[in-house]
């Protein structure tokens, strides 16, 4: 069939234009388009890769820092607790000491007071004794005087005393 023949027969004109046209196309694209495009793509791929790696690195660093931060926090907390507990112990100790000292002082004061009171008591007792003695002497004196004012009584007294002496 002739129509089919025209389908599979190569034509000179198209061959000519195809060689020129496709040649020019390859030349233009290979010179101005493909190198730019492929290089840019490669560059971007590299950029993305480095960025990803960097991001990963930063992430790791961040995680490390966080870890460090946590560690530091824990350490600080422990230190704080230690300081606090130390402070508490010291204050307790001081309190105990102060208490002890105050107790001692108080007991010393009480002791002193007791001593002073005893002393004063003794002093007062002595005074009272002396007074009582004086008063007794006075009373005795007055009684004797009164007794001796009556003659009978004087004689009786002497008699009594004589009896007593006799007994001895």
């Amino acid at each position: 069939m002739v129509l089919a023949a025209s389908l599979i027969n190569p034509s000179f004109g198209l061959l000519f234009w195809m060689l020129i046209g496709f040649g020019i196309l390859v030349f233009i694209l290979a010179k101005f388009a493909w190198p730019v495009i492929t290089k840019s793509i490669a560059k971007r791929e590299e950029y993305i890769e480095t960025q990803l790696a960097e991001a990963e690195k930063i992430k790791n660093e961040l995680a490390n820092m966080e870890k460090k931060h946590d560690e530091m926090m824990a350490q600080t907390k422990a230190e704080r607790d230690k300081i606090l507990s130390d402070a508490r112990k010291i204050s307790e100790k001081m309190y105990e000491e102060a208490k002890l000292k105050a107790n001692n002082e108080a007991s010393a004061l009480i002791e002193d007071a007791k001593k002073a009171i005893n002393f004063e008591k003794m002093k007062a007792m002595t005074d009272i004794k002396n007074e009582i003695a004086n008063l007794s002497i006075d009373i005795a004196e007055k009684l004797i005087r009164k007794e001796l004012a009556d003659k009978d009584k004087q004689e009786q007294l002497i008699e009594d005393w004589m009896k007593e002496i006799n007994l001895n």
Binding site: L25, I28, L29, F32, A33, W34, V36, I37
Partner: peptide, 9 residues
């Protein structure tokens, strides 16, 4: 093709 790829480039 030239227009497409040169503008893309």
């Amino acid at each position: 093709l030239c227009w497409i790829f040169l503008s893309v480039a």
